[in-house]
């Protein structure tokens, strides 16, 4: 997924090979990760796609099924991976992820600790940020979940950047071997306040911690325990509003008939964009945008804090 090996980097000359991980794109809300395998096929509502047809095509190609249905084959990125990974837990999405990476001040070469691993959505972006020389140590107390995450990182080619450990961080804290070595720590735990003292031990002075919690009570307790060793304690909520764009026909003819003073918004949503029936000279096509009617109203609170510099 990452150009750790520069020969795997996407380019005009890089083509899909046997064994590559591709993201099969049907629609923006329907994608799937597929490992390309010479003799294999992909079957979906558009028909049967032979992997052998994909090999040798550039990433970003449109490929056809036996029934002439089509999908696009994309190179995987952490953003696409977040949309296709199998949910073993609730996951973090792009807005929270981006903000966490930026606020934790993660740059290439950093050492980052994370708990829990969950489905590995954030971990994938953490790995991208610390590459090529840094490392992410991520812990989950659920043995199978950790194993599945490990398999995923193998699949996405991030194993050299991520180590998954099985450990109850709330109960035992992070392993002592990381004391004073972490540039940043990320906690997504039900009782983060239990892990905060250990996180403080792991961080370098001035290192940044982030705790993600869906409930304000968790935030409250986490902040109480942060106050002794941390400064710059800040809590945020970040959401994304998305927009839909349409070409609409604006009808101006009414303006002539209507009495002056009664200027009404005369927008008529057009059923078919490509319909192009020229009925009226007094109308024109305009591209307009409006917020989508549905959105995530809450994901979680992000609390950041910086380890006090005491030495």
């Amino acid at each position: 997924m990452l150009p750790i090996d520069p020969t795997k980097k996407i380019s005009f000359t890089r083509h899909i090979c046997d064994g590559d991980l591709v993201i099969v794109y049907e629609r923006h809300d329907n994608m799937k990760a597929v490992k390309v395998c010479q003799g294999s096929v992909l079957q979906n509502r558009f028909g049967v796609f032979k992997h052998s047809d994909w090999i040798g095509k550039p990433f970003g190609s449109k490929v056809f099924s036996n029934k002439n249905g089509f999908v696009y084959l994309l190179a995987p990125t952490p953003e696409l991976w977040t949309l296709v990974l199998s949910h073993r837990t609730q996951i973090l999405y792009i807005a929270d992820i981006s903000f966490v990476i930026m606020y934790l001040e993660i740059v290439p070469g950093c050492m980052v600790l994370e708990s829990g691993t969950g489905s590995g959505s954030l971990t994938t972006s953490l790995a991208r940020a610390v590459a090529p020389t840094g490392h992410v140590y991520t812990f989950d107390f659920h043995e199978q979940r950790a194993a599945s995450a490990r398999e995923d990182f193998e699949k996405t080619g991030l194993s050299s950047l991520v180590t998954v450990g099985v450990r109850d961080i709330q109960g035992e804290g992070f392993p002592d071997e990381f004391s004073g070595l972490a540039d940043s720590v990320f906690l997504d735990l039900p009782q983060p306040w239990l892990a905060i003292p250990s996180a403080g031990k792991m961080l370098k002075p001035d290192g940044v911690l982030c705790s993600f919690s869906p409930c304000i009570e968790q935030v409250q307790r986490a902040c109480d325990s942060l106050r002794s060793n941390f400064t710059d304690i800040k809590t945020f909520e970040i959401l994304l509003r998305t927009y839909e764009v349409r070409e609409v026909k604006m009808d101006y003819s009414q303006g002539d008939e209507a009495k002056p003073g009664s200027i009404l918004p005369c927008k008529r949503p057009q059923r078919a964009i490509e319909g192009g029936n020229e009925q009226d000279k007094l109308s024109s096509q305009t591209v307009m945008a409006r917020p989508c009617s549905e959105a995530k109203g809450h994901t979680g609170y992000l609390t950041f804090a910086r380890l006090k510099c005491l030495s």
Partner: peptide, 18 residues
């Protein structure tokens, strides 16, 4: 292009005190 989306981030800070 595909996967086209227009998004607008919304960011709110909280005062957290006992």
């Amino acid at each position: 292009a595909i996967g086209l989306q227009i998004s607008e981030p919304w960011l709110r800070e909280y005062q957290v005190l006992p």
